[in-house]
C-alpha cells in the first residue's frame, strides 16, 4: 500500500512516493521507492554496493531529481526547490571529507554553508560557533582543515553541514577509514544530535553501527526497498541480509547459531547476549 502525502502531519519530514531514477547511462538506480521519514528518527539505509542507497540519499536534498514519482521534503515537492534551498532543511555529509574542505581555517570552513544561505554576520558566527562546539573542534578552530587527521577532517565536514542547522542530517558512510576510537567518538556525537531532535539518515553497509545506533533500518537491494523495519526486526532474517550483500555483526551471527539452545535471534549487542545467556542459566 502506498501511503498518501499528508500535508498536516508535522512529523513527516521526508516522503518518497514511488520514486524512480535512471541515470543518463541508462542504469536504473531506483525502481520505485516509497519511504516515509518522521521527525527525530534515527534511520539507517543499508545495502551492498550498487544497491541504490547513495542515489536514494541524493534525492533527499535535490542533488538528483526523480525521473518518476515524487519526493516531498517538509511537505513540499523537492523538484520545485533548488539544492541550496533544500540544504537548509536537509544536510548531506559526503563520504570523503576532502571533497568539501577548502578554506584556510576550520572556522571559515564551518561558516561557508551558513553564509551561502544568506544569513547575516552575527548569525553566521553564532551558528558556526555552535557547530564547532557540538563537534568538539574548539581547540583547532584556527588550524587549516586540510592538515588535520582524517577523523578530525570528517568532524569538520560534519560541522560545516550542521552549521546550516538542518532538520535532517544525511551521513554517507561516516566511519570509513576511521579507527575504532575515532568512530566511537563520532557516533556518540551523532547520537547526541539525534537526542536533540535532528533526524538522522545513516547510509552504510557497516551493520555493527546499525545495530548499535539506528532505531529503524531500510534495506535496499537492486534499487528497491526490500525491508523496512525496526532494527531488531531487520536482524532476524539473516538470509535476506546475505542476499543484500550485508554481514550482520558477529554477536548477532553467534546468537543465530545459538538459537537452537533457545537464545533469541534478535540480539544486537554483546550485553544483550550476556543477559540472554545468563537469564537462560536462571531458568
Amino acid at each position: 500500500m502506498i501511503p498518501r502525502p499528508d500535508a498536516d502531519s508535522e512529523d513527516r519530514v521526508i516522503f518518497l512516493r514511488d520514486a524512480k531514477f535512471t541515470y543518463e547511462s541508462g542504469v536504473e538506480a531506483l525502481k520505485g521507492v516509497t519511504l516515509v521519514i518522521d521527525k527525530g528518527e534515527y534511520l539507517a539505509v543499508v545495502g551492498g554496493n550498487g544497491s541504490g542507497k547513495t542515489t536514494l540519499a541524493k534525492h533527499l536534498n535535490g542533488l538528483l531529481r526523480p525521473t518518476g514519482g515524487q519526493v516531498l521534503v517538509m511537505g513540499v515537492q523537492a523538484s520545485t526547490r533548488t539544492v541550496a534551498e533544500l540544504a537548509r532543511v536537509v544536510g548531506y555529509v559526503f563520504q570523503n571529507p576532502d571533497h568539501q574542505l577548502f578554506c584556510r581555517t576550520v572556522h571559515d570552513e564551518v561558516s561557508f554553508g551558513p553564509a551561502n544561505i544568506g544569513l547575516d554576520g552575527p548569525e553566521v558566527k553564532r551558528r558556526a560557533d555552535r557547530a564547532i562546539a557540538v563537534m568538539n573542534l574548539s581547540d583547532i578552530r584556527d588550524r587549516p582543515p586540510l592538515s588535520l587527521t582524517l577523523g578530525l577532517r570528517r568532524r569538520v565536514s560534519i560541522a560545516s553541514v550542521i552549521a546550516m542547522e538542518p532538520q535532517v542530517l544525511v551521513l554517507d558512510e561516516p566511519t570509513t577509514g576511521l579507527d575504532a576510537r575515532e568512530a566511537d567518538e563520532l557516533m556518540a556525537i551523532i547520537r547526541r544530535l539525534n537526542d536533540e531532535g535532528t533526524t538522522i539518515v545513516l547510509i552504510t553497509h557497516e551493520m555493527k553501527l546499525v545495530a548499535e545506533h539506528a532505531n529503524r533500518v531500510v534495506v535496499m537491494m537492486d534499487g528497491k526497498v526490500v525491508l523496512d523495519s525496526d532494527t531488531r526486526g531487520a536482524f532476524s532474517d539473516l538470509g535476506l541480509l546475505r542476499r543484500s550483500k550485508l554481514l550482520p555483526p558477529p554477536v548477532t551471527q553467534l546468537a543465530h547459531r545459538l538459537s537452537q539452545i533457545g537464545v533469541s535471534k534478535d540480539i544486537l549487542t554483546p550485553q544483550e547476549l550476556v543477559f540472554e545467556l545468563t537469564r537462560g542459566d536462571d531458568q
Binding site: 539544492v83 540544504a87 570523503n96 571533497h99 551561502n116 553541514v161
Partner: peptide
C-alpha cells in the same frame, strides 16, 4: 568524476 562529486558536495552546502 572527482570534480562532479566535489560539485555535489559543495552544492549540498548551499553553493549556487
Amino acid at each position: 568524476l572527482t570534480i562532479e562529486s566535489i560539485k555535489d558536495a559543495q552544492r549540498a552546502r548551499a553553493l549556487e
